[in-house]
Amino acid sequence: MTSKEGHVSAGRWLLLHSTNVRICHWINVIAGGYLLLSGIHIFLDFPELYWGHTGYQGYPAVFKLSDWGLSWEQAGELGNRMWGRNYHFTFAWVFLINGLVYTVWSVVSGHLGARMLPARAELRPASLRADLVEHLRGSSAQRAAATTYGPLQKLSYSLLIFVFVPVMLLTGLAQAPAFAAAWPWLLDLWGGRQSARTLHSIGTGVFVLFVVVHVVEVLMAGAVNRIRAMITGKFRLREEGT
């Protein structure tokens, strides 16, 4: 439980993920899954997006699902805003509390600085380019052996935690009349409630993209060993690597 990440235990096993990381990760999977599904439910009940403070059926829209082949009625049959709202707000709390626990722990324990945040040198264009080339051209054996995060991976995780999540939280809160009354700057920050809703919806697309890339990367980098490591913490080191 308390053994440090990176500790090589007897044999060829490495403690890759601490208990905290594993618990927070799987809570995130559940909360993120519910947030996505419930968010889609809410959206399908009103499948148009606008910009500014005002937006309703008949008002100039920036996005209409009906332009993409799904009519208002068809979307409405698929969506359920009551279920969606109940579970969206429930798992927003789960996600938020889990995220705060994770962030405080990872700052205090040093996990954040040691493993997650990219170093200045790693952020140089040359470093990022080299990492991308290695990503695209590298062998599966190379990928499967990695036990630290590369510059692009660190950058993605850091942007996700410190940019994406706050943007999603604040665009979500801006849509709520009580939060907008308590914090009127939320409306100014995004230029209106409908702008916040549109950005929140774009963010949903970013989230889906992240999940797809994340899962594909896991599958391409020794899926069994990776998933086992995120469940048990232990990562099996390759023979030639030890």
Binding site: I42, F46, H53, T54, Y56, Y59, R81, Q175, R193
Partner: peptide, 12 residues
């Protein structure tokens, strides 16, 4: 004020 419908639309 803005009328904020729980569906997602709002109108002033």
């Amino acid at each position: 004020t803005a009328h904020v419908c729980e569906q997602g639309w709002s109108a002033i």
